[in-house]
């Protein structure tokens, strides 16, 4: 096997581990036989259906992940309650809006994560995501209150900041224009460094307007 091929396989190891974990959880017993068949099945699947590499160049921060998850749980509850109240308020029809939010980071991974999490938090869900400009188009459920649009935009930036604090390198955070992690100066936690290929460089990201029939999102 050439060096490049071996590197390709090394990058799939996290996926194989995740698939094996799901396999074992579905069987319900942690036995040697289960783990072995799980590894076998996941290697087979990765070989038959090779997935495109996402490209992850980041630095996992434990504090960032905890903050992100904690905030997500609170937000899911808040979102559910607010949508439930809107659903039960019979006389009012919600008036929504579709807004454009250009994200600050350049990575596909952070775009995807921010889009996923934005759908779960109050008030918004992603209608369209445009990869080359890094732009999300959100539907906001109710914008009758003044300042609701600005707040929705602000919420997305906050979400992106939390995602980047959890997974991005300090250099990427700086390039995106966010302040560095506030706890960085004191703590050394989560020093895991992972380097992988970056699929998309910044010169590809000229501002292109979304077009009909273009399948880049």
């Amino acid at each position: 096997m050439s060096g490049r091929g071996r590197w390709d396989w090394l990058q799939r190891v996290p996926m194989a581990v995740w698939m094996t974990a799901v396999w074992v959880l579905l069987w319900g017993h942690l036995t040697v036989a289960n783990v072995l068949t799980g590894v076998l099945v996941s290697v087979l699947l990765l070989w038959v259906f090779p997935m495109p590499r996402v490209g992850f160049e980041g630095r996992v921060s434990l504090i960032g992940v905890v903050l992100l998850t904690g905030r997500l749980l609170v937000d899911v509850v808040r979102a559910s309650v607010s949508v439930a109240i809107r659903a039960l308020r019979w006389r009012q029809t919600p008036h929504g809006a579709v807004i454009r939010v250009p994200l600050r980071s350049e990575s596909d991974l952070f775009l995807t994560l921010t889009a996923e999490l934005t759908t779960l938090v109050p008030g918004s869900f992603v209608v369209e995501a445009h990869r080359f400009t890094g732009t999300l188009y959100l539907h906001v459920l109710d914008v009758t209150r003044p300042g609701a649009l600005e707040r929705a935009r602000h919420d997305v930036f906050e979400q992106e900041r939390r995602v980047m604090y959890a997974f991005a390198t300090d250099a990427d955070i700086e390039a995106a224009g966010f302040e560095p992690r506030p706890w960085r100066l004191r703590s050394r936690g989560g020093r895991t460094r992972t380097r992988m290929t970056r699929e998309r460089s910044s010169y590809e990201r000229g501002k292109v307007l979304p077009r009909d029939g273009e399948d880049e999102s």
Partner: peptide
């Protein structure tokens, strides 16, 4: 029902261009 629709604006603009 939409107070503002920036996606349609952008799609329109891209089509015209």
């Amino acid at each position: 029902l939409l107070v503002r629709d920036e996606l349609t604006e952008d799609l329109e603009r891209a089509r015209l261009r």
